[in-house]
């Protein structure tokens, strides 16, 4: 089938403003948007720049805005989209070139929530065990691939780039609710700041955009509730009566 695809192009060495360019390529309806981008790059304009790596929805490299919504180009089929397909870079990040955005700030925020196991205990000789129920508690947020689709679909992030963003909160959630982790207090302190979870307005764009199907809004809500509970808990346990 003939496919019309419009791509928002920007070359910082030549262009002052991004501009839309249209291409017509021949593809199968069951091909993906990534295949369309390959067809443009390989047969029409080799200067088109975009990221992709695994091309199977695991690495999260090819996050971009497709027909107005954040998606992974390798997961969206042509037949599911209205033509002409409009492809542009994710919102809220500086554009490096064409569909490539600068994600340095995104990964700085990711690192700011200490996305690793924090434990004062000496490493055991075997695995740090936990029950299936304890593992299930944070199962959903283990699926994040850091593609940035959630953070760049969030109006709170567009309005204030200091906001830590849904992706970093999801990563924090993964460890905060891990029974083996002891870094809850320091992560909570980071997320309780003005740039933390309270900037979330429960808009659900992040949940809708997540290519891994993570209920991001729920994860953020759970962190909010945890912070409220910690703030309203009495500083000392009430005295017990004999």
């Amino acid at each position: 089938m003939q496919l019309d695809i419009q791509i928002k192009r920007f070359n910082p060495e030549q262009d002052r403003e991004p501009q839309w360019r249209e291409y017509t390529v021949t593809l199968e309806p069951t091909d993906r948007v990534l295949d369309a981008l390959h067809a443009v790059k390989w047969h029409h304009d080799g200067s088109l720049a975009f990221r992709r790596s695994c091309a199977h929805g695991i690495c999260g490299s090819d996050g971009m805005m497709i027909n107005g919504r954040n998606r992974l180009a390798c997961k969206v089929l042509i037949k599911d989209l209205r033509q002409p397909i409009m492809v542009e870079p994710m919102r809220g990040f500086p554009v490096v070139k064409d569909l490539i955005v600068d994600m340095a700030g995104f990964f700085d925020k990711y690192r700011s929530v200490r996305p690793y196991l924090i434990s004062d205990e000496a490493p055991p000789r075997t695995e740090r065990l936990q029950s299936p129920a304890e593992r299930e508690r944070y199962e959903d947020t283990t699926k994040c691939i850091l593609c940035g689709a959630c953070t760049t679909s969030c109006p709170s992030f567009w309005a204030n780039s200091a906001y830590v963003g849904p992706a970093a909160i999801v990563q924090a959630h993964r460890f905060i609710f891990d029974s083996r982790d002891q870094g809850r207090a320091e992560r909570s302190a980071i997320l309780n700041q003005a740039s933390g979870v309270w900037r979330c307005r429960t808009i659900f764009n992040c949940t809708d955009a997540c290519p891994r199907g993570i209920n991001v809004t729920k994860a953020i809500g759970e962190v909010k509730k945890l912070l409220v509970k910690a703030a309203t808990r009495p500083p000392h346990p009430p005295p017990t009566r004999d």
């Binding site: 027909n67 107005g68 109006p155 808009i203 809708d208």
Partner: peptide, 13 residues
Amino acid sequence: MWYRGGIGHWSWL
């Protein structure tokens, strides 16, 4: 900024 969000996006707007 324009974004083709779902119900949550438009209700927020």
